[in-house]
Every structure is written in structure tokens, then in C-alpha cells.
């Protein structure tokens, strides 16, 4: 049996995007952007702090890092928890030693579970972003929009209870529905870390207002590089520093560019990775403006 005839009809076949969330605009046609003090590249460290429950539904897909073996998968529960107990504090120490501020993207459900970690992040002046509710509350197109709204609302409320008013949002697993940008904007988030669209933050339109899409580079994700692609720590470091060096070299042509990269506490925070992590943070701090994503989004 053949496919229906409309399988070959292309309703959104036109110049530019096949959606209306943002305008078609190529990087090469953009007026060069400038950063303060002549900085050529802005970099943001994005540290996801996640709650991996022992009993996830795994729907609509298993969140990266979620439980893998039959219940009770204490092995993966505790290796993920290691990041929030131990690894995140190693990251904080490196940031402190080098003197840079990062963005910690926190699951709403985690806030009340790790108060000393949240307090340490705040005390050291890092940015706190919302990372949705938890790793089992994934935003996706099959989700009833009313339920998706409750995910955003309960996340907002959890931060408010801690006296926090984040503007930056990262979705669990960086997965969205077609409503996510609108719903987070309604809830007061105007910077989003899910989209890698451009080499600078760009504006997305929603009925509730504008959301700035801050580019977090998928290909520099520490979990992917180190635990999926199995590159070495030195290769991880070299790729990141190469990205920054390349963007610096392009500056006269492109103007200032920006990127975010994830440092996952249960990956980057392991003892044998701290030496390379320090070289990454030091290396970027030498040649780039290192600042939280919300700060960079406001500058560019």
C-alpha cells in the first residue's frame, strides 16, 4: 500500500523556516556584535543539576542519565547523586579558583533536596536557571498542554519558595513541545538554553512575548563527548579550547560570538577529570568573556 497523496504535499516549503518561532536571518548578514572591553567571544558554563529518581516512567523517552537496570537501580541512582553531593562542589572550587561565574540549571524538584549546594551557588554569585521540574517531566508534543503548564508553574513556584526568580530556562533533556517557549515566557522566563540556532543569542517570538535563545553547543556536551563518544579528557579540553580559538580568529569578520557548554557534575566532576576541567576553565577565562548565560544574552 502506498503512502497517502498528501505525503508529497509541502505546505511550509518556502524561504526560511518551516515554523514561525524566529525569523530567517543568516549569521553572515548580521551587523557584527560587540562585547564589553573588546572581548571577542563570550562563553557560559551551563551546569545541570538534576534529580534522577529511582522509579522514572521513562516517558516519552528515558532522560539521558536516567535509571537503566531493573528497579531498584541503586547503581545509577547513586552515580547521578554523586554529581550533586561531590562533583558540583569540585566544579564550584574550580570556578572560584579561576574567578568565573557559571549558570547552574536546577530541576525544581531538586531545590529542596540539596539546600547546602544551592546556598553555596548563591553565595558565590553564580546564576541559577530553572531546569524544569525533574528528569521525568519531559516537555513534548504528546503532552496535554494543561499538564505542561503545570510543569512550568510548579517549577516557578519551587524557585519562588526559595526566594529565587530565575529568568533563564533549560528544559529537561532540552526537549520541548510546540508550546514550551510560550509557556515559559508566560511564567517569566525570557532566556532559553535548549536551542543551538546561531552563534549569538537570537530572539524567538511567542504569543506571550520574546524569548532569547542562547546557543548551547550540543557537540561540546561533556556527557556526550566523554561518556558516549568516549573521547579522552585531553581531547575534551582541546575541542573546547579550539572552538573558542576559532571564534576568536573569526572575530574581525563576524564580530563577537557566544556559546554555552554543559559541565555535568556527575561527568565533569569526577576526580580524574578535574585536571582537564581546570585547564578548560582557565583556558577560556584567558581569552574569552566568561559569564552566566543570562548575562551574555543581555550583552549580545
Amino acid at each position: 500500500m502506498a503512502l497517502p497523496d498528501d505525503y508529497l504535499s509541502y505546505l511550509k516549503r518556502r524561504r526560511g523556516q518551516d515554523h514561525d518561532l524566529y525569523s530567517h536571518a543568516l549569521a553572515k548578514d548580521r551587523a557584527p556584535k560587540r562585547l564589553p572591553d573588546g572581548a571577542k567571544v563570550a562563553v557560559s558554563f551551563i551546569v545541570p543539576l538534576e534529580f534522577f529518581m529511582l522509579n522514572p516512567s521513562g516517558k516519552p523517552f528515558r532522560h539521558p542519565g536516567a535509571m537503566q537496570t531493573p528497579y531498584p537501580d541503586l547503581r545509577h541512582y547513586t552515580t547521578r547523586d554523586y554529581g550533586n553531593r561531590v562533583g558540583a562542589f569540585r566544579l564550584l572550587k574550580v570556578f572560584r579558583d579561576v574567578g568565573v561565574k557559571a549558570t547552574f540549571a536546577v530541576n525544581g524538584a531538586l531545590l529542596a533536596r540539596v539546600p547546602p549546594l544551592i546556598a553555596a551557588i548563591r553565595a558565590e554569585g553564580h546564576e541559577i536557571a530553572a531546569h524544569g521540574w525533574d528528569t521525568d517531566s519531559i516537555h513534548w508534543s504528546g503532552l496535554d498542554p494543561a499538564i505542561e503548564k503545570t510543569y512550568v508553574a510548579r517549577t516557578r513556584e519551587a524557585f519562588a519558595r526559595e526566594g529565587l526568580d530565575p529568568r533563564v530556562w533549560m528544559s529537561p533533556a532540552r526537549q520541548q513541545s510546540s508550546h514550551t517557549l510560550e509557556f515559559i515566557r508566560e511564567a517569566g522566563f525570557d532566556v532559553c538554553l535548549d536551542w543551538e540556532v546561531d552563534a549569538v543569542p537570537i530572539a524567538a517570538r511567542t504569543p506571550a512575548g520574546e524569548v532569547r535563545l542562547f546557543p548551547v553547543l550540543n557537540e561540546l556536551d561533556d556527557r556526550l563527548i566523554l561518556t558516549v563518544k568516549n573521547h579522552s579528557e585531553d581531547e575534551w579540553r582541546d575541542q573546547i579550547l579550539e572552538a573558542a580559538e576559532m571564534m576568536r580568529a573569526e572575530h574581525s569578520k563576524t564580530g563577537a560570538q557566544a556559546f554555552g557548554l554543559t559541565l555535568t557534575p556527575y561527568v565533569a566532576g569526577l576526580p580524574f577529570r578535574i585536571c582537564a576541567l581546570r585547564e578548560i576553565v582557565e583556558g577560556l577565562a584567558r581569552g574569552c568573556l566568561v559569564a552566566p548565560a543570562g548575562t551574555v544574552a543581555a550583552l549580545l
Partner: peptide, 15 residues
């Protein structure tokens, strides 16, 4: 089935 095994308390790796 439980979300948190409660086998130990959260204890940050500092101080």
C-alpha cells in the same frame, strides 16, 4: 516503588 531510596542523607562534600 520509591523515587528516593532514603539509604543515606544528603551530605555535601565540603566542610
Amino acid at each position: 516503588m520509591r523515587a528516593d531510596p532514603n539509604l543515606y542523607d544528603y551530605w555535601p562534600y565540603t566542610d
